[in-house]
Design a protein around this nucleic acid. Structure first.
Length: 769
DNA sequence: CAGGCCACTTAGAAGACGGTCA
DNA sequence: TGACCGTCTTCTAAGTGGCCTG
């Protein structure tokens, strides 16, 4: 009952009224609304959202694969304690203890040795993963007689671990250099073969964690070792010829004041810096960094002249862009070294990539939307702020020279390797593993399994909340309507937010009276609810939805005697809603509906839109359209690319050229036909064939381009990535690719394939979500 | 049971990369 | 050969939801 069809969605996109705009374009409306409302508890805040230029770290991380050394040592006393939540120690339960100790003691140090230039991984026995892998590995070591394919692979990968691993990226880079010198056919062939081989090797090295037993009792790992986070470089004071001016006069600033000034100067091109909130937040925080003298002198931001700092920054950016190839290579290598050293950890016997191993550099805070804290100084994080989490028996990461960590703990009920508290919002930041890791993958898989469970129960749940719309209890009716919205419209739960802490955004449970308008009749529909609010990231949600009479009546009731700033669901919170949901099905929360509806929509749309007889391009268009239907449902928007109009025009002109070519080719074909007719000259026949082929080729090209143009146009303001990465069960896509005979890499790029390795491996043609 | 803390997922923008075409 | 442009990767903000505490 609640699914959007492709027609619905296309309609939504096409119908101007229904287009969900970026908040920035609607600030006027929202302001007017808030003003008219008079009593908005957030006081008529402007809601414009501007795009932000970031002062970001320049280090490009690339995908790497470095070698490592495994040295299996004597059994250490790794985990006598599991440090519980909030860092409080708790004695590990008996059974865990037993499990941890279950690993067989191994002593063949030498044959486990891998080499690494940057990391010497020592894996004590406690590092040995769960029982199932243990058994598998042990068997592989002992008898090597594994028979099944899976066992074979397991043994093979064990063998592979012993060899130093090559670095695919480097390899191909070198290859690339050679190619430039002289690229013969054989060389290219060799390169391709090498690539294939590497791919195969990589596949064999992959940790097939999905074939292993899971840990119980919230245990996330048995062994964790890493090098700690990577800290951004220290501040380099300005060169002598770059000056800051106050009130027209040169002023030499102390290092920290200067650094903070530079943060501001770097952003001068940005609209942010003319916003009053941003400026005043910045100035307030900047003054806190100043020494007494500076604070005495610098009292007005408007008298500050950052021009030279700004210019210096721009020059630097330009210079970086114009670096020579050699310099770029040197840079790249340096970055690669950092990734090699800090970018990986060892988790239960396996090398895993870390997602964000770099400490966030200092800068000015940029919230999204009308964030009250924009412009505040995000301070430099010191090692003394950082908590390290790793195994007791591991090499504890060394803090930078002259520093110490805030704390080193050994909590294997969490997945983070390091954390610190950020000063602007006071929230904790974590260093965690990459999406392709076991820890993330297992959770992801679990998420989709819960959503699939919902599939079996959703009819019953829907029936119930329809019933609940009639309940005598206000709480129940509110819960039912909220659930109806969450299910039908894929709204987020809408946790309560602290006022003034962030931009004024809402989700379902936190909707306010001002966010909906009821229409008894609109556009030929009865009982239409018009939604207009800012959701996560201050993205506007605008939609007009016909709802059931009963829901409509309830909404009217909820609005009675309320003012615009009041909560629509005043008796409801996400906690009570989720409590109710988990009583209906274990693991069920509001968010599961989003996952479920997204995935089921994809599956239905794919069924509906794709045909086996279509061309590859058409199949892909269908896939993208199905993906798009989901993105629209979930309101995943993006700013239209800056180059959109231009590239669209380019594509159109290409299409026009092809059309001309097509006409020409057809003409020539006609001529060739004429000439070949009645003649037995094989030459003429060959010409005819050639012309026929030419027409076919141009026709195909034209079709491909036209399809591409359609896809592009439809995708102008819609972001497909978020749903693909977070909401769509990858097994649906894998099965579709298999059924449609579409290569998987048309749908998932390399890192997506890595992330979804579990799904790629286990999905058969007949998979049903 | 509210409120805060904590851990983890979800999100769009910006920046880096790399293939293509004139 | 280098500009252009689309794609991929990185970055980090902003959500969700569980658990603990008082």
């Amino acid at each position: 009952m609640t699914q959007f069809t492709a027609e619905d969605n296309k309609g939504m996109v096409k119908n101007e009224n229904m287009i969900k705009e970026k908040s920035g374009t609607t600030s006027g409306v929202k302001q007017a609304r808030a003003k008219a409302a008079g009593k908005n508890k957030n006081g008529g805040k402007a809601k414009a959202q501007k795009k932000v230029k970031d002062v970001k770290s320049e280090d490009p991380d690339s995908e790497i694969d470095c070698t490592m050394r495994l040295t299996v040592k004597e059994e250490p006393d790794d985990a006598d304690y599991v440090e519980g939540k909030r860092g409080k120690k708790r004695k590990r339960p008996k059974e865990e203890e037993e499990e941890a100790d279950e690993g067989p003691s191994r002593s063949h140090k030498s044959d486990k040795k891998l080499t690494s230039s940057y990391m010497d991984w020592d894996i004590p026995d406690a590092a040995v993963p769960g029982p199932s892998l243990l058994k598998k590995n042990k068997r592989a070591e002992e008898d090597g007689e594994a028979t099944s394919e899976k066992k074979r692979r397991s043994v093979k990968s064990e063998e592979k671990m012993k060899k130093p691993k090559r670095e695919p990226k480097r390899e191909s880079k070198e290859q690339g250099e050679n190619d430039k010198v002289k690229k013969t056919k054989e060389e290219r062939e060799a390169a391709r073969a090498l690539k294939l081989k590497l791919k195969e090797e990589e596949e064999q090295q992959r940790w097939r964690w999905w074939e292993e037993e899971r840990y119980k009792d919230g245990i996330k790992w048995r062994f964790l070792e890493h090098k700690g986070p990577f800290f951004p470089p220290e501040y380099q004071p300005l060169p002598a010829d770059v000056h800051f001016y106050y009130n027209g006069k040169v002023m030499k600033l102390s290092p920290i004041t200067e650094e903070t000034a530079l943060f501001f100067a770097q952003m001068l091109d940005h609209e942010y810096t003319i916003k009053e909130v941003f400026r005043s937040n910045f100035f307030k925080d900047w003054r806190k960094e100043m020494n007494v003298e500076e604070r005495r002198v610098i009292t007005d931001l408007n008298k500050c002249n950052f021009t030279e700092l700004h210019t210096m920054h721009k020059n630097k950016v330009e210079a970086r862009k114009n670096m020579t190839k050699e310099d770029k290579l040197v840079n790249k290598d340096a970055n690669q070294k950092i990734v090699d050293e800090f970018g990986f950890c060892l988790l239960d016997h396996h090398k895993e990539r870390i997602g964000n191993f770099k400490i966030e550099p200092p800068g000015l805070f940029r919230g999204r939307g009308e964030h009250p804290k924009m412009g505040m100084l995000k301070k430099r994080v010191q090692p003394e702020d950082v908590i390290i989490n790793c195994s007791k028996g591991s090499h504890i990461p060394q803090p930078p020279a002259g520093h110490r960590w805030k704390e080193v703990r050994h909590d294997n009920t969490v997945t983070w390797l390091a954390s610190w508290t950020e000063n602007v919002q006071g929230s904790v930041k974590y260093i965690m593993l990459n999406a392709n890791s076991k820890l993330k993958g297992e959770k992801d898989w679990e998420k989709y399994e819960v959503a699939r469970q919902l599939k079996g129960r959703v009819d019953q749940i829907r029936t119930q909340y329809q019933e609940d719309l009639k309940s005598k209890q206000m709480v129940t009716r509110q819960r039912a309507v909220a659930l109806y919205f969450i299910d039908k419209l894929a709204l987020r739960a809408g946790n309560e937010k602290e006022e003034g802490e962030g931009a004024d955004t809402v989700g379902c449970c936190s909707l306010r009276v001002e966010h909906i308008t009821l229409h008894d009749a609109l556009d030929g529909h009865a009982c239409v609810v018009e939604f207009d609010f800012l959701g996560k990231d201050s993205i506007r949600y605008y939609n007009k939805v016909p709802v059931s009479k009963r829901a409509f009546k309830n909404l009217k009731l909820f609005l009675e005697n309320k003012q615009p700033g009041d909560d629509l669901f005043d008796r409801l919170s996400t906690a009570t809603l989720n409590k109710h949901l988990s009583s209906l099905m274990p693991g069920l929360t509001a968010k599961v509906f989003r996952t479920y509806n997204a995935s089921i929509t994809l599956q239905q749309q794919l069924k509906e839109l794709s045909n086996m007889v279509d061309s590859a391009a058409e199949k892909l268009l269908s896939y993208n359209r199905a993906n798009r239907a989901v993105a629209i449902l979930c309101n995943h928007q993006r700013a239209p690319p800056k180059t959109f109009e231009q590239s669209m025009a380019n594509l159109q002109s290409k299409i026009d050229t092809r059309k001309e070519q097509m006409a020409q080719a057809k003409l020539e074909l006609k001529k060739a036909k004429k000439e070949a007719k009645g003649s037995k000259d094989p030459k003429l026949k060959a010409v005819l064939e050639k012309k026929q082929k030419a027409v076919m080729r141009v026709k195909e090209q034209l079709l491909r381009m036209e399809v591409q143009a359609t896809d592009k146009e439809e995708n102008k303001q819609i972001a497909l990535g978020t749903s693909k990465l977070n909401y769509l069960d990858p097994r649906i896509s894998v099965a579709w690719c298999k059924n449609m005979e579409v290569p998987l890499d048309k749908v998932y790029n390399k890192s997506q394939r890595d992330k979804f390795a579990w799904a790629l491996d286990m999905t058969e043609k007949d998979f049903e979500f």
